[in-house]
Design a protein around this nucleic acid. Structure first.
Lengths: 189, 189
DNA sequence: GCTCGTAACTACGAGAGTGTGATCCGGACC
DNA sequence: GGTCCGGATCACACTCTCGTAGTTACGAGC
């Protein structure tokens, strides 16, 4: 992290192809984000990312590590999940609880993320689609609730990507569109 | 905890006086709840209660320990605060975050607890008086929110006291009335 | 005044979640 | 094919939050 290299030169795919958005399906495994990049974007240490991958909290979905010298490859949705974990930690939520939340979130990452909030209960997690849903959960819930606004998470990730690797944003936007994420949408009143 | 003793006999104040509610001001230091009782009511281990007292998370407000053989005395409001901590832990919130929340809560324990919810942000804690307040916090908040419904906390404590020490409830109700707590009140729609 | 029960105190240790630094290894470049 | 660089791996240690077990001391009852 002391000497940030050119993102288009150390990627295995020519920058021109990335910028033109003409990637084939099988080439996705060649791009994505590597460990140190992920740390910078999400705002965590490499030690944390490594530990989380080893303990199965979140392994890179594009390409996992296979011995020294190999390279982990994280997808855009991995970044979102990692940022959710980071935000939960910042809010004082234990990694143990974050594990359960992420297990749930992974199964619903294809849904509309920006308008939803992740609501974590003692026992289970729920995706609340709007303010009404949250209001109901608060009124009927007996215990403590943890609420993660996913829209701001997506915005934080995009800001991190733009800041560090402007050229990579094109590929990320493709994946994000495929996941139906709209960072401009709010919670809706 | 293996041999629960008679609560009216091991208290320093005759049960009749407690039941009649004719205690003087200075006699409050003689009653309250001792360590093992607190553990049973709140649902924590003695080791936790001890650790929390030593690390200044929550010390007994009626009488602190002063060497082996002495006895800690916890007030009813101490029980409420301890149960808030317990609920936060069950929700996966770290003790470190709980510390900050309790620091804030202690300064507002005199307010109407049952209709309020404790809302914990990355940086600060707030007492939300009704559903509208929570709704606003969720809508305008950028990060993760932890919400503790205090009404249910009070109900949990009362249930614990009633189950273990029916005769002690009278004194507790006095203190609770003084603190303007109404366990029947909900959040209010 | 002696015993006894209870509860606070002390010591040791375990497990999670990291920080730090050394080491290893694969691929690019010469 | 040797070197270099980036990144994965490993070893060690540290803090926090307790669990377990043994010790100490206060107060009540005989």
């Amino acid at each position: 992290m002391s000497t940030p290299s050119d993102p288009s030169s150390d990627a295995s795919v020519p920058a021109s192809i990335v910028e033109q958005g003409v990637l084939g399906e099988n080439q996705w495994e060649e791009i994505g984000y590597r460990g140190p990049q992920v740390c910078a974007i999400v705002g965590i240490t490499y030690r944390q990312l490594d530990y989380w991958a080893r303990t199965e909290l979140l392994r890179p979905s594009l390409c996992d590590a296979q011995g020294s010298g190999s390279k982990r490859r994280y997808s855009y949705l991995d970044l979102v999940a990692l940022k959710v974990i980071k935000n939960l930690l910042d809010a004082g939520v234990s990694l143990k609880t974050a594990r359960k939340a992420i297990d749930y979130l992974r199964e619903h990452l294809g849904e509309d993320l920006a308008t939803a909030s992740l609501v974590i209960d003692e026992n289970k997690s729920v995706l609340a689609r709007n303010g009404e849903d949250i209001f109901d959960l608060v009124r009927h819930g007996q215990g403590v609730l943890n609420i993660v606004p996913l829209g701001s998470v997506v915005r934080q990730i995009d800001a991190g990507i733009t800041e560090l690797h402007p050229s990579d944003l094109v590929a990320s936007l493709e994946e994000r569109d495929a996941a139906q994420i709209d960072p401009q949408a709010g919670l809706g009143s």
